[in-house]
């Protein structure tokens, strides 16, 4: 469904991503694992074209989306949930959802306010609160909900478990599995294996912007040396 082919990305003169190559097949959850600063966020932004790869290409559903404007990438069914959450703090929960709303797309669930509130009951109570009044976990839910309103077929979740309470992390894992069961494809990034183990089918490990391992979760678990070398367990 998504193919990342030989992608090199730079910030100015700094070479941040070095020849990234991996696929994500439809209906799976792939975890992008690596330490802080390994290049996980840049990989996601390069897929969304928020960072323009200097070489290589990103193919989505057989279409080369490299160098498209980000809004066009998003309208093509790729939803991005940023790590820093970046909800609109001056807008209410409902207004945040409104910003994310896109017309229905063939073959994807058409999300409504009510459906995302069913998925995240906490948000329903706070629908008229401004974004800045929400807790960290609620903000994380809102970013996911907001992206779902765009009816994506593929979502990129950047460190969904970072900085939120353990009980909400569990809820996140359940949500991701539920989304998967509804046919969504997910690429998520994580620093440690723990959360990924609960949800992922495939794994990509990167370090210093270079990918060190691509395979299934089972394959990774069969190679504890790789796991110990690149990940903090």
């Amino acid at each position: 469904m998504l193919e990342v082919k030989g992608v090199n990305s730079f910030y100015g003169k700094a070479h941040v991503l070095n020849d990234m190559n991996f696929d994500v097949s439809a209906g799976t959850v792939v975890a992008l694992l690596g330490r802080n600063g390994a290049g996980k966020t840049t990989t996601m932004k390069s897929i969304m074209q928020m960072v323009r790869p200097r070489s290589g290409s990103v193919i989505y559903k057989g279409q080369d989306i490299t160098n498209w404007p980000s809004h066009k990438v998003a309208r093509n069914g790729l939803g991005y949930v940023p790590e820093e959450r970046r909800i609109f703090t001056q807008l209410t929960v409902l207004e945040n959802l409104e910003v994310g709303r896109q017309p229905p797309r063939d073959g994807c669930t058409t999300w409504t306010d009510q459906m995302v509130f069913d998925l995240f009951p906490n948000l329903a109570e706070r629908r008229n609160n401004r974004g800045k009044a929400l807790s960290g976990g609620e903000q994380q839910m809102l970013t996911i909900a907001r992206t779902l309103m765009g009816n994506p077929s593929f979502i990129l979740l950047d460190e969904p478990s970072e900085g939120i309470a353990p009980v909400i992390v569990e809820q996140m894992a359940r949500v991701i599995l539920q989304l998967k069961s509804e046919g969504l494809t997910v690429l998520l990034s994580e620093q440690n294996l723990h959360f990924a183990q609960a949800v992922a089918d495939g794994v990509v490990i990167i370090e210093h912007g270079t990918q060190k391992f691509v395979g299934t979760l089972a394959e990774l678990q069969a190679q504890p040396d790789i796991r110990d070398q690149y990940l903090s367990v």
Binding site: H71, A74, Y80, F88, L91, E95, E98, V99, G100, Q102
Partner: peptide
């Protein structure tokens, strides 16, 4: 209105609005 909501959102974070599929240009 929706347009107004988008405008207010863009006031805060243009890049994010764009990543949500809005043509900010």
């Amino acid at each position: 209105t929706r347009v107004g909501t988008l405008v207010r959102a863009a006031t805060q974070d243009r890049e994010m609005v764009s990543a949500l599929g809005v043509n900010q240009a």
